[in-house]
Design a protein around this nucleic acid. Structure first.
Length: 452
RNA sequence: GCCGCGGUAGUAUAGCCUGGCCUAGUAUGCGGGCCUGUCAAGCCCGUGACCCGGGUUCAAAUCCCGGCCGCGGCGCCA
C-alpha cells in the first residue's frame, strides 16, 4: 500500500467502543477496525486477533479461506503492538464484548522493529521507572489511558465551571524576571543573555488580570519548581489550575468558588457513565462532599490533632504530611467528607502577598483544601493595599525593589481580591487513589528524570 | 538537600544474610513447531541477565568503598 496518497474517506471512521455499542445497526455490515495488535491466538486453522484502540478491544476471527493465504498465515506471525486494520463483517459472538469481527482482510500498517521493552497489556506489572521510560507503550494499557481521560475531564470541568461563574480564561507568560516568593526555588533560563526564570506560579499575573479589569480570571498552565524533592506527591513541573477574583469580602468568597468547582468535578465524573465506570475500576465508589465542606481554622486543627490523635504540632507551624493525613481522617470520620478546608494559616507559613487577619496579624486569610488528606488547593485573600503590601514585603525580610514591578500593579486602583491555585495532577491522583503523582502525569519531571 | 532500602535476561522475580554446590532458577515476552472457538489459551524446542568503577579473597551476583540510577520517608510545597 502507499502512504500519503490520500483516499476516499478515512482509514478508520469509528472507535471500537462505537462498533460494539451500535451492534444492532451494524450487525452483518462490513467495517474496518484499526488499532494495535493486543494479542494473537493462533490455533492453526483458526486464528484470533484482538485489536485494541483507545476505547476498547475487539476480537477478529480468521478462518482458512477468509482471505488470501498470505494474509491468513500472516495473522499467526503478527507481532504484538503492530498497527493493523482488519476488514470484516461485524457479528455477534461469544466474546466478552458480545461482538466480534468475521475477518475478510488484514492490512498491516507497521510492525515493531525490535522486541517490545514493555508489554502494554501487562505494563502495570513493571516498575514505574520502566513504564515511564517507555511511556508510549505504557499509555496503551487501558487502565493507564483512563487516568488521562479523567485528567482531561477535570480540566474540562475547571474551564466549564469557572466560565459559568463569570471568570475569563487568561494565558500568562511562563518566562519571568522574578520568582513569586523568594526567588529560591526557580529554574533559571538564559534569556538573550539576561537571567530569567521559569514561572513557579502565575500568582502575580493572575492578580494583574483582576487589577487589570478582568475582575475574575482563571488559567490552566504549567508551573515549575526547582525543589529537589523525592516524594510520591511532588513534581518539578506540574499543571496548576488557578483562579483569582476581585471584589470579595473575605477568603470565604474564594473558598465557596473552590468548593463549587469540586462539586462540579464530582458531578462531571460521577454523572458520566464512562467516567463513573473508570472511577469504579480504580476502586472509587464516590467522591464524598457533604452539604458544606467543613472549615477548620488551623488553631482548631492543632487542638483536634492533639486531643483526638495525640499528634502535637508546634503552635504556629504549618501542618506536616502526617497532620494533613490525620485531618483528612478527621473529615472522613466526623463529616463523612473527602474534603476539609484548613483556614487562617500563620503568617510565618504563608507568602507575603497573603492578607493578614484584621487585628490578628500573626494569622492570615490563607487556607488550604485537603482532599483525602493531601493538600490540593492553596488560596487566600490577597493584600491589595499598596502601603500594607509594602510593609508585608519588608516584614518578610524581602527587598521591595525586587518586587517593584509587582507593587506597581497596586498603585492605580486594585480591588480587594483573592484566589487559589490547585494542582491538577494531585486532584487526579487523589481522585483515583494513585500511589504516585507521576502516574497522573504523562511526562513527569523530577530531579532525575528529564526524558522522554 | 537529608535519612533508609534497593539495582540479576526485553519485563517481573529467585539466589545475596551464611562467598565455592550458579554451567545463575522461574514466569512472561521474543524465535521456531503443533493445534478449527481461543479469550490469563495450551503443549514441545530454542533464545536471553548479575548497573558502572575500585577493593578484600585462592575464589565475588553474594562482602567492603565510591559513582550513577531506582523506590520510600522527611524538609518544602500543589
Amino acid at each position: 500500500m502507499r502512504y500519503g496518497a490520500g483516499g476516499y474517506g478515512m482509514m478508520k471512521d469509528r472507535f471500537i467502543e462505537e462498533l460494539i455499542r451500535l451492534i444492532d445497526d451494524l450487525e452483518g455490515k462490513e467495517v474496518s477496525v484499526c488499532g494495535w495488535v493486543h494479542s494473537v491466538r493462533d490455533l492453526g486453522r483458526i486464528k484470533f486477533l484482538v485489536i485494541r484502540d483507545r476505547t476498547g478491544t475487539l476480537q477478529a476471527v480468521f478462518k482458512r479461506g477468509c482471505c488470501s493465504e498470505e494474509e491468513f498465515r500472516g495473522v499467526g506471525r503478527l507481532k504484538l503492538e503492530s498497527v493493523v486494520c482488519v476488514l470484516g463483517e461485524l457479528v455477534r459472538g461469544k466474546t466478552k464484548e458480545g461482538v466480534e469481527l468475521k475477518a475478510r482482510g488484514l492490512r498491516v500498517l507497521t510492525e515493531p522493529v525490535e522486541p517490545l521493552p514493555l508489554e502494554p497489556a501487562t505494563s502495570l506489572e513493571a516498575g514505574l521507572a520502566t513504564r515511564l521510560n517507555y511511556r508510549w507503550l505504557d499509555t496503551r494499557n487501558p487502565r493507564v489511558t483512563k487516568i488521562f481521560l479523567v485528567e482531561a475531564a477535570v480540566a474540562k470541568a475547571f474551564r466549564e465551571y469557572y466560565t459559568s461563574r463569570g471568570f475569563v480564561e487568561i494565558f500568562t507568560s511562563k518566562i519571568v524576571a522574578a520568582g513569586t516568593e523568594s526567588g529560591a526555588e526557580v529554574f533559571p533560563v538564559i534569556y538573550f543573555g539576561r537571567e530569567a526564570y521559569l514561572a513557579q506560579s502565575p500568582q502575580f499575573y493572575k492578580q494583574m488580570g483582576v487589577i487589570g479589569g478582568f475582575e475574575r480570571v482563571f488559567e490552566i498552565g504549567p508551573v515549575f519548581r526547582a525543589e529537589p524533592h523525592h516524594t510520591t506527591r511532588h513534581l518539578t513541573e506540574y499543571h496548576s489550575l488557578d483562579i483569582e477574583m476581585g471584589f470579595i469580602d473575605g477568603p470565604e468568597d474564594v473558598m465557596r468558588e473552590v468548593e463549587g468547582f469540586f462539586r462540579h468535578v464530582r458531578k462531571t465524573l460521577m454523572g458520566d457513565p464512562t467516567l463513573r465506570v473508570i472511577l469504579e475500576e480504580f476502586g472509587v465508589e464516590d467522591i464524598r462532599i457533604p452539604r458544606e465542606i467543613p472549615r477548620v481554622s488551623i488553631r482548631d486543627a492543632y487542638r483536634i490533632l492533639e486531643e483526638r490523635y495525640g499528634k502535637k504540632l508546634p503552635y504556629g507551624e504549618d501542618l506536616d504530611p502526617e497532620a494533613e493525613r490525620l485531618m483528612g481522617r478527621y473529615a472522613s470520620e466526623v463529616y463523612d467528607s473527602d474534603f476539609i478546608f484548613i483556614t487562617e494559616y500563620p503568617w510565618a507559613a504563608r507568602p507575603f502577598y497573603t492578607m493578614r487577619l484584621e487585628g490578628d496579624p500573626q494569622w492570615t486569610t490563607g487556607f488550604d483544601l485537603l482532599y483525602r488528606g493531601l493538600e490540593v488547593v492553596t488560596g487566600s485573600q490577597r493584600e491589595h493595599r499598596y502601603e500594607v503590601l509594602l510593609d508585608n514585603i519588608k516584614d518578610k525580610g524581602l527587598d521591595p525593589e525586587a518586587f517593584k514591578f509587582y507593587l506597581d500593579f497596586f498603585k492605580h486602583g486594585a480591588p480587594p481580591h483573592g484566589g487559589a491555585g490547585m494542582g491538577l495532577e494531585r486532584i487526579v491522583m487523589q481522585t483515583l487513589r494513585l500511589k504516585n503523582i507521576r502516574e497522573a502525569r504523562l511526562l513527569p519531571r523530577d530531579p532525575e528524570r528529564l526524558l522522554p
